[in-house]
C-alpha cells in the first residue's frame, strides 16, 4: 500500500523511461503539494514517487528574444513572482502564482504541477489559457505540443498518456496594447480553494477605446477550466464600455456548467463567473492602457 520507491532522474529521457516502465504506478511530482497529501490521505495509490526537480530543463525559465516566456514544468511559483521582468511582462501570471497557497507552498508548487493535477478549480489554469500558453510534452516517441486549453479533460484527468511527462509551458509575447488579469473568489481572504475563478487577456486599439481581441477563461464552473470563445467574441471590435463588458459577463455565465457542492451552489458559481469576468476584464483593460 505504501510508496515503494523514490526516484529522482536527472534528464527528461530518464524520467520518460521510468514512467514508461512502471505505467500508472509511477507518478511525477514537482513541489508535491498536491501529490504528497493525496498519498498520505490514501486518496491516490502511488508506488514510485518520481521527483522531477533534478531535471534541469524542468527547473529553468527564460524570456526569449521574441518576448515569449518558456517556463519549465517544475519551476516554483515564487521564483516567477520574485522575477521583476517576468512580473512586468506577465502580471496575470503573477496574479495566479502569488495566490496559490501560502509562501511555503509557493516556494515548492509549480505551474506545471498545478496544470497536471488538473483540478477544475486550479488557480493557474485560466491564466495559462487566457495567455495562450502551449504545453510541451515528452514521451517515448519524442515531444509534442498541446494548447493549454486542450490539456485538461476532466477533474484530475488530462491528455498525458502513460509514459508522458509535461516538460514546459510557453507563453507568447504579449501583443501591443494588451493586458491580462486573473481573479478568484474564495470565502476567506487566503489559503482557500476557488469557488470560481477567471482570467482575461484583452488587446485594445491604439487609443485604448476599442477591444480588438480577447481571450477569457473561467474556472471551477465546469469539469475543466474553460476558454470561453463566446466571451472573447462578445468583446472583439466593441468599444470598451460597461455594456460591452456586461455582455461578455453574460456570455461567461451562459458558458458556465457548474455543479453544487460544499464550496458553492451552481447558481452562485454561475453568478460569480459573471462577476469575476467583469472584474478581470476591467483590470486587464487598466493594465493594457498602462502598458
Amino acid at each position: 500500500m505504501a510508496v515503494k520507491d523514490y526516484i529522482a532522474p536527472s534528464s527528461v529521457d530518464d524520467a520518460v523511461a521510468v514512467l514508461s516502465e512502471h505505467g500508472a504506478d509511477a507518478r511525477p511530482f514537482a513541489g508535491g503539494t498536491d501529490l504528497i497529501i493525496q498519498v498520505r490521505e490514501r486518496r491516490r495509490q502511488v508506488g514510485i514517487m518520481l521527483d522531477v526537480k533534478k531535471i534541469p530543463e524542468l527547473m529553468e525559465y527564460s524570456i526569449g528574444a521574441d518576448g515569449s516566456l518558456r517556463v519549465g514544468a517544475a519551476v516554483a511559483c515564487a521564483r516567477l513572482y520574485n522575477d521583476a521582468e517576468v512580473a512586468r511582462r506577465f502580471p496575470a501570471l503573477i496574479d495566479s502564482a502569488s495566490l496559490i497557497g501560502g509562501i511555503q507552498i509557493q516556494s515548492r508548487a509549480s505551474l506545471g504541477g498545478n496544470l497536471c493535477n488538473s483540478s477544475p478549480a486550479g488557480d493557474s489554469i485560466p491564466t495559462l489559457i487566457a495567455l495562450g500558453a502551449t504545453c510541451e510534452i515528452a514521451g517515448r516517441g519524442g515531444r509534442r505540443t498541446v494548447p493549454v486549453e486542450s490539456f485538461c479533460t476532466g477533474p484530475g484527468a488530462n491528455v498525458l498518456q502513460p509514459g508522458e511527462l509535461l516538460v514546459s509551458l510557453t507563453f507568447p509575447a504579449p501583443a501591443a496594447n494588451s493586458g491580462a488579469a486573473f481573479e478568484r473568489f474564495i470565502p476567506r481572504n487566503e489559503m482557500d480553494i476557488a469557488v470560481a475563478n477567471a482570467a482575461a487577456n484583452v488587446t485594445l486599439s491604439a487609443d485604448g477605446a476599442t477591444f480588438t481581441a480577447a481571450r477569457i477563461a473561467i474556472g471551477a464552473v465546469a469539469p475543466t477550466a474553460l476558454l470561453v470563445a463566446e466571451t472573447g467574441a462578445a468583446l472583439a471590435g466593441k468599444p470598451v464600455s460597461a455594456d460591452t463588458i456586461a455582455a461578455a459577463a453574460a456570455a461567461a455565465r451562459a458558458a458556465a456548467r457548474p455543479i453544487t457542492d460544499m464550496r458553492g451552489s451552481a447558481d452562485q458559481r454561475r453568478h460569480l463567473a459573471g462577476v469575476l469576468v467583469t472584474r478581470v476584464i476591467e483590470k486587464a483593460v487598466e493594465r493594457a492602457r498602462k502598458a
Binding site: 470565502p187 476567506r188 481572504n189 487566503e190 482557500d192 480553494i193 460544499m262 464550496r263
Partner: peptide, 16 residues
C-alpha cells in the same frame, strides 16, 4: 461530513 478537513472547514485565517 464532506468537509472533514481544514481546506473546506473554514476557520478564519489571520487575514480574515
Amino acid at each position: 461530513m464532506v468537509n472533514a478537513g481544514y481546506l473546506d472547514y473554514r476557520i478564519p485565517t489571520t487575514l480574515d
